[in-house]
Design a protein around this nucleic acid. Structure first.
Length: 239
DNA sequence: AACCAGGACGTGA
DNA sequence: TCACGTCATGGT
């Protein structure tokens, strides 16, 4: 007989360990050139550049990550990646080059990632913002003031582009942790984010892997309804 | 053929 | 604050 009570709910670190044991290091945030070998789609994925935590190393790598966070908003990463490849082909993965790029050309390049009008606008705007930073790390508040940067994108930029310990919450995180009964469906973004940050050591490598692992796990068990079928994190008898 | 994808913004209550 | 419509393309 299995009784569900608060003591049966695993803690955040335990779940992280389980996910890491299942999937291994994910090697986020993906960067072109470094991630030349793509994982196969059978599930034997080992990540992009696993166990490498010193990236990004250059200004343009940092900028590429920022472009990626905007392009992948409500969009499959594969589509955002194609857009990035198009930009790479145009040799415009640098804020100054984006600013001097014709807007219609930009739209054509990113069309495959959807929301082309908004995203072209966002990309232009954040390019100027990035230049004005002069290499400084932006605050979360500053990032949120940029049009196109909401909670998740701000945290993604801080975590993956600047290696700061800001936990990223996305729709997958909400789905999984609602099932695990660690968060409530109606909890706000900040409530969930704060809960993770209160219950985990503030280590950017840990936050990096954790969010990436959540995405990997969700793609397997939380992309089509009903959710959580055969989820190894959940005792199937108690679903 | 609907539904989803590593969301954010503008609007009106 | 908050629910709701909108933004757009591509894959399943």
């Amino acid at each position: 007989m299995l009784i569900i009570n608060q003591y049966d709910i695993p803690d955040y670190m335990t779940i992280y360990t389980k996910l890491y044991d299942l999937y291994g290091p994910q090697g986020w945030w993906p960067l072109q050139e470094i991630d030349d070998v793509k994982p196969d789609k059978t599930g034997a994925k080992k990540g992009y550049h696993p166990m490498i935590y010193n990236l990004p190393e250059t200004r343009n790598q940092r900028f590429e990550i920022i472009l990626g966070t905007l392009l992948t908003q409500n969009t499959a990463w594969t589509s955002a990646e194609k857009a990035l490849k198009n930009l790479k082909k145009l040799d415009v993965i640098a804020p100054e080059k984006i600013l001097s790029l014709d807007t219609e050309t930009l739209k054509t390049a990113i069309k495959c990632a959807g929301f082309l009008n908004q995203k072209a606008n966002y990309i232009k705007t954040i390019s100027e913002f990035f230049i004005n930073l002069n290499g400084e790390i932006p605050t979360r508040k500053e990032l949120l003031s940029v049009k196109g940067v909401g909670n998740e994108t701000a945290d993604s930029i801080l975590l993956y582009a600047y290696k700061q310990p800001f936990f990223v919450v996305d729709a997958y995180t909400r789905r999984i942790f609602t099932q695990l009964k660690l968060v409530n469906e109606e909890d706000s973004y900040l409530e969930i984010k704060n809960q993770f940050e209160r219950n985990l050591p503030h280590d950017h490598k840990l936050f990096n892997e954790y969010h990436a692992l959540i995405v990997e796990h969700a793609k397997r068990y939380y992309s089509k309804k009903p959710y959580a079928v055969n989820d190894p994190l959940i005792d199937q008898n108690t679903r």
